[in-house]
């Protein structure tokens, strides 16, 4: 089995995610970019799991755990974004500059 194409896809997705985190100014889109990075990891894990022919299916099981944890993280993240939006009527992370230096 050739895993290269999966790994390239995962690396690309991961890079797009990091790019999104760095340049996006809306907190929801930053959150979305982080999710993209986690998805890239999932692709990696499943591809490696299939490639290694692991009897315990550790790769696939790990991907399931990551999906569950990512869901919990998004739950908290969106709650925090809603909180920010209620306090400031904006979810633009450039405006979060009360704390500096």
């Amino acid at each position: 089995m050739i895993v290269n194409q999966f790994l390239v896809l995962a690396a690309l997705l991961f890079s797009i995610g990091i790019y999104g985190v760095l340049v996006r100014r809306n907190a929801v889109l930053v959150l979305l970019s982080v999710e993209l990075m986690l998805t890239a990891v999932n692709i990696n894990l499943v591809a490696f799991g299939a490639f290694l022919q692991d009897e315990l299916l550790a790769g696939q099981v790990f991907a399931l755990f990551v999906i569950a944890v990512a869901a919990a993280e998004v739950g908290i993240g969106l709650a925090i974004v809603v909180l920010i939006f209620r306090n400031r009527s904006s979810a633009n992370i450039d405006e979060l500059n009360l704390l500096k230096w």
């Binding site: 959150l31 925090i80 992370i93 009360l98």
Partner: peptide, 9 residues
């Protein structure tokens, strides 16, 4: 709220 969002992201 700002601390929470920065910490979270």
């Amino acid at each position: 709220d700002e601390a929470a969002l920065k910490y979270f992201l």
